[in-house]
C-alpha cells in the first residue's frame, strides 16, 4: 500500500474558547494524527484565557507529544502593545513563527518563518521575496482557484513548502472595529469578552435568512465551512506539502482523521459539522467562495 507524504496541520484557534475547553482540545490534538500545530492568539490582543506563557507551555507539551509546533503572530497590528507582543514572540528562539502581517518579518531579521495566509503571496516574485526574507513555507491565499494555485506552485522558488487550508470557516476580513462588541452595543475596550459565548462565531444572515458570514470579534468569516477534503489527492498531486484544518467546535479532529485515513489509502468517514453549518468550496472552482459545488452532505 502506498503511503502519501502530505502533512496535516492544525491552524491557530481563531475563536475565544474558555481556558479549560482550549486545553482539553489541544490535549486531544496531542493524541491525533496532526503533524504540525500552529498556536497562539491571532485575532484579538485583549483575549486572555491563555496568556503568552500558557501558549508557550502548551507548545512545549505538544512538541513533547511529537508535533511540530509553530507560534502564529497576530494578523492586524495597531497599538504599541501589540507591536511589543510581536517582539516578545519573535524573541523566543525555541519555536518557529507563522507571520500574520508583514511587519513581523522585520523583527525576525532573516530567521526562518512560515508566511501566513494573509500576506497576499499571489505570484512567484512575491514568493521569491518572502523566501529571501527567510520563509520556509507559505500558506496560499484563500481565494485562489485550483487553476491559479497550480500556476502559483510552478512559480515558487525551490525549497519553499506550500500549505493550503482545506477545512473550517474561512477568515475573510479584519477590522479595527470589533463587530461582536458592536452587536452588544459595547465599546471595544470594555467588550465583556462576549465572543467567549460563540465557539464558532456569531451567525450573520441576510434579511431572507440566508447563511452568509460569521462574526468573530474583529474578524469576519464565512458562515460556511470550507471543505476541500475530497481534493486532498489533487492537492498532493499538485505538489502541496501541507493541508491545513482550522479549528471549529465540532468535527475538527474528524476532519484530521479523514485526511489521515486518505493518506493511508483508507476510505474516510463522514464528518459532523457544528449544528446548522453548511459547506463551501467555490474558490477552488474559480467561483464565488460561498458556493458549494458537489454532493450535498
Amino acid at each position: 500500500m502506498e503511503m502519501i507524504s502530505s502533512q496535516i496541520s492544525l491552524g491557530p484557534l481563531l475563536y475565544y474558547w474558555p481556558r479549560q475547553t482550549t486545553l482539553d482540545f489541544y490535549e486531544q490534538v496531542g493524541r491525533s494524527p496532526v503533524d504540525i500545530v500552529y498556536l497562539g492568539e491571532t485575532v484579538c490582543s485583549r483575549r486572555h484565557e491563555l496568556r503568552a506563557a500558557d501558549w508557550l507551555a502548551l507548545a512545549g507539551e505538544l512538541r513533547a507529544a511529537g508535533k511540530a509546533v509553530i507560534l502564529s503572530s497576530p494578523t492586524l497590528v495597531e497599538t504599541s502593545t501589540e507591536v511589543a507582543q510581536i517582539k516578545r514572540l519573535v524573541n523566543q528562539a525555541e519555536f518557529m513563527i507563522e507571520v500574520g502581517e508583514v511587519g513581523a518579518i522585520r523583527s525576525l531579521a532573516g530567521r526562518p518563518f512560515v508566511a501566513g495566509p494573509h500576506l497576499n503571496a499571489y505570484h512567484g516574485a512575491t514568493l521569491a521575496w518572502l523566501a529571501g526574507q527567510g520563509a520556509k513555507r507559505f500558506v496560499a491565499p484563500l481565494e485562489l482557484s485550483q487553476a491559479d494555485l497550480r500556476t502559483l506552485l510552478t512559480e515558487r522558488p525551490a525549497g519553499l513548502q506550500a500549505e493550503v487550508m482545506v477545512w473550517g470557516r474561512m477568515p475573510l476580513a479584519f477590522s479595527a472595529r470589533c463587530f461582536t462588541a458592536r452587536h452588544f452595543h459595547l465599546r471595544k475596550d470594555e467588550c465583556g469578552f462576549r465572543c467567549i459565548d460563540y465557539p464558532d462565531g456569531l451567525a450573520l444572515r441576510t434579511q431572507e435568512a440566508g447563511d452568509f458570514l460569521a462574526i468573530n470579534g474583529i474578524q469576519t468569516q464565512s458562515a460556511q465551512c470550507l471543505d476541500l477534503l475530497e481534493q486532498a489527492g489533487e492537492l498532493h498531486g499538485m505538489g502541496v506539502e501541507v493541508l491545513r484544518v482550522s479549528p471549529q467546535s465540532r468535527g475538527t479532529l474528524d476532519a484530521v482523521a479523514a485526511l489521515h485515513q486518505w493518506r493511508q489509502g483508507r476510505a474516510a468517514l463522514p464528518i459532523p459539522l457544528p449544528a446548522g453549518m453548511r459547506r463551501c468550496n467555490g474558490y477552488w472552482h474559480g467561483k464565488a467562495g460561498i458556493d458549494w459545488l458537489g454532493q450535498e452532505a
Binding site: H118, E143, L172, A173, F174, R177, K287, A288, G289
Partner: peptide, 21 residues
C-alpha cells in the same frame, strides 16, 4: 473601508471578484 484594506476577501467570497484579484 471598515476592513483592513488589501486583506479583505468578502467581495470574492460573495462574487468571485475582489480588490486583490
Amino acid at each position: 473601508c471598515v476592513m483592513a484594506e488589501g486583506r479583505c476577501l468578502l467581495s470574492s467570497f460573495a462574487t468571485g471578484d475582489s480588490p486583490n484579484n
